[in-house]
């Protein structure tokens, strides 16, 4: 019963995920237009069958720009989460497994990073390093490390008291092996819950920062930079900002929903209710 109920959203989400992946890797398969193609006969053209989301101020197909923007968007999302995991997971394992002083120190550092509002921290870093894709990925990764750290630390604390870990210890298995082979695989479930949520945050922060000119800079295309460019056309061509904002919202919402779904799948108690 539960599987039947959960199937529909999973089908929808995987289709959307596949579409996102195709638009990031092979955008030319999804649209006949080029995102930098200028067409003076189609300036701010209304949506039609050949241009489903209309055209922008240079006559470029809005849908094509959104599709081509996916690549950078996905790079920011995946890059920041991956970078944060590289630092957050080992620290979380160590803190959760050993406890004591090292745990206290790592937790305090994590809490300190968490107390920086992400946008403000981004402003501080952009002010000294300048705005670029790399800065953005770095700032997001820095903000995500403590979130991944806390999750892995908590999971490790629970798991390391379980019998099989205890017996591995008693058999003299190397600590590194216990951490990465015995404990880490059991934290994957909760990790799958938090990763989509972090990616949703990344989409929204990217949009916000690019909008205030501190994220991705035009002519590079991301959804945030498209939202910035479309700012002036809310009256003249409302479909343009509506399409870009709608896609951004949809992407973030789908990510949050899939985090919820993963949560329900991981937590059997929630599933029963």
């Amino acid at each position: 019963m539960t599987i039947k109920l959960m199937k529909l959203p999973i089908i929808i989400f995987s289709t959307l995920g596949l579409l996102t992946l195709i638009s990031a890797i092979f955008p030319q398969f999804l649209t006949p237009y080029h995102p930098d193609e200028i067409d003076v006969t189609a300036l701010l053209q209304k949506p039609s069958w050949s241009h489903p989301f209309g055209c922008d101020e240079l006559g470029t197909d809005v849908l094509a720009r959104i599709i081509y923007g996916t690549r950078l968007e996905l790079m920011v999302c995946l890059g920041s989460v991956a970078l944060a995991s590289i630092f957050g997971i080992p620290c979380g394992l160590v803190a959760g497994y050993f406890g004591g002083k090292i745990d206290w120190i790592l937790t305090v550092i994590a809490d300190s990073i968490l107390s920086f509002p992400i946008i403000l921290f981004a402003v501080l870093i952009v002010a000294s390093l300048g705005a670029s894709v790399l800065t953005l990925v770095g700032v997001l990764a820095f903000a995500f490390i403590p979130r991944i750290f806390r999750l892995i630390r908590g999971q490790t604390q629970i798991i390391s008291s379980l019998g099989y870990v205890r017996s591995a210890e008693a058999m003299g298995v190397k600590t590194v092996k216990i951490l990465f082979l015995h404990i880490l695989p059991n934290t994957i479930g909760p990790l799958m819950v938090i990763v989509p949520q972090l990616m949703a945050i990344a989409v929204l922060i990217e949009a916000g920062l690019s909008f205030i000119g501190l994220g991705i800079q035009p002519p590079q295309i991301s959804w945030g930079s498209l939202l910035l460019v479309s700012k002036n056309y809310y009256v003249a061509a409302p479909w343009y900002p509506l399409a870009v904002g709608g896609v951004t919202t949809l992407a973030a919402a789908v990510l949050v929903f899939s985090g919820d779904l993963a949560g329900a799948a991981v937590n059997p108690l929630r599933r029963l209710k």
């Binding site: 949703a200 949009a207 916000g208 939202l227 700012k231 904002g245 919202t249 973030a252 949050v256």
Partner: peptide, 22 residues
């Protein structure tokens, strides 16, 4: 609620300005 959380706030702001002000 999830949609409200997932919407870029400045976009909503600009849509509101366009509707209520302009």
């Amino acid at each position: 609620a999830t949609l409200a959380m997932a919407t870029p706030s400045f976009w909503v702001g600009l849509l509101l300005v366009n509707f209520f002000s302009i």
